[in-house]
Design a protein around this nucleic acid. Structure first.
Lengths: 231, 231
DNA sequence: TCATTTAGGAGAGCACTGCTCTCGTTATCC
DNA sequence: GGATAACGAGAGCAGTGCTCTCCTAAATGA
């Protein structure tokens, strides 16, 4: 209502931003378990109880960080895709998946926060689901665009069978030009991007993979074949 | 040296077993973060400091639980494979991967312990790597056995290129009959089993997958095609 | 057999955590 | 200008992992 926001509200959002920034720094240094409200407060020259004016609980702060992480990753992959949108589908796929992995490796703890073990008792708020869709949406667009360019030989198989195990309405929104009988392949591709990064970051590839950079490209190429992406 | 072990040593291993049992129960109830040494001690009618006679630190207890979890899962999939070893490679693949997922769903917190975010600062002890190999080894045997039955049309391509990003010596041990140019495919299959289960258990499939049971079978069938497993 | 070593448990205590409550102060709104 | 609400300080509670000292009872060696 007031023409100009006064210092009060501005100071609040600024304070919230500071809390999240400090938290992100401590998160990067010591991981989730090492992130404590008291230390954040200490760093800010505040007493711990003051933080509760902004976040009712530690989990609430973590949820905010998760949301930001999803959006940060989301915009990173969107940016990468924007740069390569004129190239072939295969190159777009490589650019996008590389961007995801790159973000993951430079923000390992934030990545673990969103794609690792759910922190408290796992209840994904609606907002995080929406933010999470940004990154999968970017990948989906590449695949859907590719199908839009393919010769229209599609068989348009019935979705009746697929409906038993997939929520096709939600998927169709993301893959408007992909025939439903390819939804499973698309989900496999999506799953594999994060399956690889999880295994790499969480140490499962120790002893088998020597150079994960090269391996990732090879695997993503194999997935592109699997998706029959245009070259 | 003594002919019969006295009560002392036996009581010790028994006490250790009790600690791990109680810990597993509490782990299943409240997750990793909810597992506290003091509560374990309380349940056993002990004082917390007594537990430190058996585990020098909480992480040491967790490491023991991780080791047991790997072995428990390992023997579960080995058992499943033993029952289906006479069937086709495709059926063996389905039996083994189903066993893995079944174990994961009935031990979600233990699964998260070994395939989720590394708990403290991630240092995988040698012993856990060995135990972890049991489950991947069981999967590998299926694939290697399948290749042993295939007509010997293998091209035996040079491993020179693959050596740059894979530790082929370790992989060859697990896949003795698989030509090296198929190692990447094998690693993709292995990665995807756990990529799927991670996504399912950690809530990433909410909104897209309706019936994960059916979806899993479909996906594993697609992977079997990808591996060209015999039917 | 008896003295000695050693293992196991009890209990107090330290430093830390998340979170709650009360109480002044100070900026905002009517 | 006075009421209202936001903000921060500070004390305190219950909980944590871990350490240290002390005592008892069991295993060991001469």
């Amino acid at each position: 209502m007031s023409p100009v926001k006064k210092t009060r509200a501005a100071a609040r959002v600024e304070q919230i931003e500071t809390i999240k920034d400090v938290s992100r720094r401590l998160l990067a240094e010591k991981g989730v378990t090492g992130l404590s409200l008291r230390e954040v407060a200490r760093e800010m020259g505040l007493v711990s109880s003051a933080l509760y004016r902004y976040f009712a609980t530690r989990d609430e702060l973590l949820t905010a960080l998760i949301l930001d992480a999803y959006n940060d990753l989301g915009s990173a992959v969107e940016r990468a895709d924007r740069r390569s949108v004129t190239l072939s589908s295969r190159r777009r796929w490589h650019a996008a998946t590389r961007a995801i992995r790159r973000w993951a490796k430079s923000h390992p703890h934030e990545y673990a926060l969103i794609y690792g073990t759910p922190v408290p008792n796992y209840v994904a708020p609606e907002l995080t689901i929406e933010a999470a869709t940004r990154v999968s949406g970017a990948l989906a667009r590449i695949l859907s665009d590719d199908w839009a360019r393919r010769p229209p030989t599609r068989t348009t198989a019935s979705t009746a069978n697929i409906r038993t195990f997939l929520i096709v309405d939600n998927i169709r929104e993301l893959l408007p030009d992909v025939p439903p009988d390819h939804y499973v392949k698309a989900l496999i591709a999506w799953t594999h991007v994060f399956g690889f990064i999880n295994f790499e970051l969480f140490g499962q590839y120790v002893g088998t993979v020597r150079n994960a950079d090269v391996m990732f490209d090879r695997v993503m190429d194999e997935i592109a074949d699997f998706l029959e992406l245009g070259d």
